[in-house]
Write a protein that binds this DNA or RNA. Structure first.
Lengths: 216, 216
DNA sequence: CTTCCGACACCTCAAAAGAGGGATGCAGGT
DNA sequence: ACCTGCATCCCTCTTTTGAGGTGTCGGAAG
């Protein structure tokens, strides 16, 4: 790369799409990219549905995707885009360092997961790396990921139960809402506590919130 | 004020300081302000301590302050700046719509409280309004505020107890950590449940998180 | 100087939650 | 066919929580 005079996929500008419900963030990304000779912002979207439309019409080389947006969240948009365009290169750019969120995003086909906090140098480097086909997970998140490497993740049902508990339901109420017996709920709760390594339901909820397993 | 031809405090540019731990947000603010003829960005800070320094050296007309930053949070920075410069005009610019957070910020001397989400038009208008001495609270937050207008807020001690509960402590453990009797803790918990309008400790924690009374 | 409120403490009692055990059926993969 | 994970249900037992009610003490506000 460099001496050969040719087609030049490398020297071509990287076409970027930014997806974030916060206008300020999109503005920041736009400003950052405007200063790069090898990049160009080709579109913006403020939620998942719009992201899909923008992707269809612009076919960006790299997409910066926030999670937690109105209308349609980033994970769902990620899945939708990747199912339609399997070669899509998508970087998750979020505030949350939860390991569960990161796992879901990477499983959904994200190429990188970085935090809005320490973006200074990471963002631009990551865009270039991802365009080149590499993957990247922010160190802070990677540490989270590593610290929970051993413990198995919650099942769909367990997440459902835990969400209802977080919303203020007792075991009996959860049982009613899910149309199962209270004993079954207790069984689920026991597994949840064990998997999260906590001793009571309240701590289970806060631990799951920290890790991005459930939302408020 | 308006028809008289004079000193011109109004036509002068509004000098703005932006405080946010997210570089992208600062970048976005900078880009937005750069397009306004009547505004000029005079400084940036990524946490509370730096905000105080920057305020001292630049004396901005208006300061945009995020809450929840490392080193020193926005509320504390707000208080510190306002105690040193009582005329300081500070706009809280945050992601969180919790009414408790807003109440604390306004009590600490903030002139406005707006959300990063719907910034498009609000931000610039708010900067001008605040410079002119007006106050402003984002509609979404105001609604939150109104919906909790009647219920009294938690005492310091109650917040302390609730935080420990959120961290996974039983009543007995909370009692040990605060060096009080378990019965007293139960008394506090009872008041907490009553004030927050919930039936159990887990819901109390999630309700308090939503309202910005405690943090994760 | 009262009056009110918050923090503190003690009591009883019923309901919920958590720890222990075991058992069934069903789906997916080997 | 077998095994494993998951969801489901049942039982017993102890601990924790939450709902009642009462009272003291100190400080802040009236």
């Amino acid at each position: 790369m460099g001496s050969s005079p040719k087609t030049g996929t490398s020297p071509a500008v990287i076409r970027v799409l930014t997806v974030d419900d916060h206008a300020l963030i999109r503005e920041g990304v736009a400003a950052l990219i405007a200063n790069q000779k090898d990049m160009s912002l080709v579109g913006e979207a403020s939620h998942g549905r719009e992201a899909i439309e923008q992707f269809r019409s612009h076919r960006p080389d790299v997409t910066l995707m926030d999670l937690q947006m109105p209308e349609m969240n980033g994970i769902d948009a990620l899945i939708a885009i990747r199912s339609e365009f399997p070669e899509a290169r998508i970087i998750v750019l979020t505030t949350y360092a939860g390991d569960a969120l990161c796992k879901r995003a990477m499983k959904a086909g994200a190429q990188a997961y970085i935090l809005k906090g320490n973006v200074r140098k990471d963002l631009l480097d990551t865009i270039r790396a991802v365009r080149a086909g590499k993957k990247f997970i922010h160190a802070e998140v990677a540490a989270e990921l590593a610290s929970h490497a051993t413990d198995d993740s919650l099942s769909e049902r367990e997440i459902e139960v835990l969400s209802l508990i977080a919303a203020g339901s007792s075991n009996k109420l959860v049982a009613d809402q899910l149309a199962i017996s209270e004993d079954t709920v207790k069984g689920h709760v026991k597994n949840i506590l064990s998997k999260l390594g906590v001793n009571d339901r309240t701590h289970a909820v806060t631990a799951a919130l920290k890790r991005g397993i459930i939302e408020l």
